[in-house]
């Protein structure tokens, strides 16, 4: 049953992606991307990644959509007709996909517990967590306690991006004022 729900959600995700490729009205594309993010959050729920699902629903479907709509308001909402044939990119993407799918055939089956990924570091965190941190949510304790420096690095990236956006848009406002 778990697997069936997972597969249905993933199929919907794939269908929405075709919509994102084909639709030329950018407003519609942004709305489709938002629906895509919510579906992705549902898939993450099924994959037992509840913290990630919450973040994806708020950040991916919320903040990203607002940012993209803001950018559309300041630019244009219609995509131009393509000038070049999409054949070469399609062949490159198709070949890459075929090689990658060939690679997946050796991977362990979905949902198995005895893979190297699930028996080393992750299992170690689960085993040590209660004695060392006393936080029942292991994702929280790994994020803030065991891998706190990762989170510090992430904050630095967000801070730098924020400064970058402010600098770019401030220049843009000054140029507008000169025109008045």
């Amino acid at each position: 049953m778990e697997q069936l729900i997972n597969m249905v959600l993933l199929t919907l995700l794939a269908l929405i992606t075709f919509g994102i490729i084909r639709v030329r009205n950018l407003f519609a594309v942004v709305v489709l991307t938002s629906a895509y993010s919510f579906l992705m959050a549902s898939v993450m729920m099924v994959l037992d990644a509840v913290d990630v699902a919450m973040t994806e629903a708020s950040v991916g479907a919320g903040i990203s959509t607002v940012l993209a709509l803001g950018a559309l308001y300041l630019t244009k909402t219609e995509e131009a007709e393509p000038r070049y044939s999409p054949l070469l990119p399609a062949v490159v993407a198709g070949t890459t996909g075929a090689v990658l799918i060939f690679g997946t055939l050796d991977l362990p089956p979905f949902g198995s517990a005895d893979t190297p990924l699930n028996t080393h570091v992750g299992a170690d965190y689960l085993a040590r967590n209660m004695a060392e941190t006393d936080i029942p949510n292991v994702v929280t304790s790994v994020l803030a306690s065991y891998r706190g420096f990762d989170t510090l690095g992430e904050t630095t990236v967000v801070f730098t991006a924020g400064i970058g956006v402010l600098m770019l848009l401030k220049r843009w406002r000054k140029a507008e004022r000169r025109e008045d």
């Binding site: 992750g122 994702v139 992430e154 924020g162």
Partner: peptide
């Protein structure tokens, strides 16, 4: 479920929205 990928992807989502904001700007 294995908690380690969840932690890594939490970081990646936030960094992703930061780079998207910079790109849109």
């Amino acid at each position: 479920a294995n908690p380690l990928p969840h932690v890594l992807i939490l970081t990646a989502i936030v960094v992703g929205v930061a780079t998207l904001a910079l790109g849109l700007a």
